[in-house]
Design a protein around this nucleic acid. Structure first.
Lengths: 206, 206
DNA sequence: CAGCATGCTGTACGTATGTATAGGCTGCTC
DNA sequence: GAGCAGCCTATACATACGTACAGCATGCTG
């Protein structure tokens, strides 16, 4: 599905850029490398996006819009349970995930925005659970922890001996449930997620 | 204390490299930039470390040795409670932390080793707690989560409005206690950490 | 004091990279 | 069919980078 030939060249370049930025880092990626991956000339990259920075900004826009649309549909369907929402993110295409992980470390504006909005969502979602720290700090720590698995995906995948962490979704979901305190989740959500994980695996077995 | 003039030029170059690699990324850092930061000529960098890759390897070695020595002293003192151990890591000098965070994402050998060893330690430390996932996967997820706060330190610091996350140690510690399930920690450890945090703050107030 | 190793610098070279420019091909409009 | 706009390429250029090399000062050794 990804990288199909029926995409416009512009879209193919953007996808290639996401992948290259994601795997090589923003500084490490090159226009020529991106062009090669997209199967076009380096000059076409410049034609569509102007400069490397412009291309990176376009990637930022794309990831941000992707993030916004997924959270929005999650909201519409009413089940903005934090986990299903984050599951959406993990269902993103690999290039988008790789880029987001890198962007969070390289400090692009979109990554900062995604982080901030996730913190805001989490803070609201967790409501007023009692704890040692204030709700805001807890939301920040929780978000950094959940995204940690994304940013460090290569190590998680390596130790689990899978190609991509998306190949170990339920396993990771269960372990996450073990690690995260049920006290900070709204009542009943933990059970809800447990059931969802079971159903997911049943469907996969068919 | 860091970056003092009484260090050998070789050590100053290494520290400068840690900082540059950490802030700019490995591909983004340049020999010239490192030399400038260290206050030496670019040629001296080459004289001491040969190539950029050699310099990076030296940084890897340094971080790995730093990590090993801190975990070792923690072992010797008998309190290899995971948290105090991770607190040690967070007490590392800023350049070392920055480098480690980048190295985990850029995928250097030392970073992979640190990750693996932390997983092993965590797995042993958590012993045989019951849970949905196996102990190994839980250790992997837990480690990725804890290191997530390190790798994403810039966003955590930004939202907490502090210069460095080391300026918010107890606050982050408390929030972490809120987020992490007490069930996976050995009995009594949560209380232990709580007390340690209180003592730490008392000492700081003096 | 001659010889030499060590730490350090200045300069130079080849290459890769971002970017600018000129031009070609296709398909549409009048 | 002439003209033109959009998509695309080939070539060229300036810069920054990693690296090689020759040389200078200092201090130690015989």
């Amino acid at each position: 599905m990804p990288h199909s030939d029926d995409l416009t060249a512009r879209a193919r370049i953007r996808d290639a850029a996401l992948a290259e930025f994601g795997t090589q880092g923003i500084a490490g990626a090159t226009i020529r490398g991106i062009a090669k991956r997209a199967g076009v000339s380096p000059a076409l990259v410049q034609h569509h996006f102007g400069t490397k920075e412009g291309l990176r900004a376009a990637c930022d826009d794309h990831v941000l819009e992707y993030y916004r649309s997924t959270t929005e549909t999650a909201f519409e369907r009413g089940h903005i349970s934090d986990s299903s929402f984050l599951a959406k993110i993990y269902d993103s295409s690999q290039p988008v995930l790789d880029y987001l992980a890198r962007a969070l470390v390289d400090g692009t504006p979109a990554a900062a925005t995604v982080f901030d909005e996730m913190v805001n969502l989490t803070e609201r979602y967790f409501a007023d659970r009692p704890g040692l720290a204030d709700a805001r700090t807890r939301a920040i720590v929780y978000t950094s922890m959940r995204l940690g698995g994304l940013v460090l995906h290569q190590h998680v995948a390596r130790l689990l001996d899978v190609e991509s962490i998306t190949d170990a979704g339920p396993q990771l979901g269960r372990a996450t449930l073990d690690v995260v305190s049920p006290d900070i989740l709204p009542d009943g959500v933990a059970d809800q997620i447990r059931k969802a994980l079971d159903n997911y695996e049943k469907e996969e077995d068919r």
